[in-house]
């Protein structure tokens, strides 16, 4: 029982790690290039969830100052700010990879990794 209790307490962290592993699996094994880019995004989302879950304080209020109220414990705003920067970084990497996939599609006519490898091997054999 206490095992399940501790599982529920740390459900945020478990979810973050699960997302990281799912993303990693997608990037490594999937054949379609676009799904690999999505895998990178999922990995990034998992890590950001982990960071934000660290900043959570049980029973804390959102860290926004309301001039009427005073005091109370707020949750830690620092990880959220760090993640804002991290999200922008992952978005720019995604944009760059997508433009590369557009070029690859124009050159090879497909977005499947195995077919592209086969085409490259045929070219090298003809060389």
């Amino acid at each position: 029982m206490s095992f399940f209790q501790s599982l529920l307490d740390h459900i945020n962290y478990l979810g973050a790690v699960a997302l990281f592993v799912i993303g990693l699996f997608t990037v490594v094994t999937h054949g379609n290039l676009i799904k690999r880019i999505m895998g990178i995004n999922i990995m990034g989302t998992g890590i950001f969830l982990f960071f934000v879950a660290i900043g959570n304080v049980t029973g804390g209020l959102p860290p926004i100052i309301d001039p009427a109220e005073e005091g109370g414990t707020f949750i830690n705003p620092l990880p959220s700010v760090l993640i804002l920067t991290g999200i922008v970084v992952v978005v720019s990497i995604t944009v760059y990879s997508l433009s590369l996939v557009v070029r690859i599609y124009e050159t090879y006519g497909t977005t499947d990794q195995d077919e592209i490898a086969k085409m490259i091997r045929e070219e090298n054999d003809n060389d």
Binding site: V27, G44, T107, I120
Partner: peptide, 25 residues
Amino acid sequence: ENYTSAFRYVMLNEIGSLSYLFGVA
């Protein structure tokens, strides 16, 4: 050949950076 090598570079580098970020977390 530049496009496929650059794509592989991006994917592997991204896995590396995100692992590093996980360590920082």
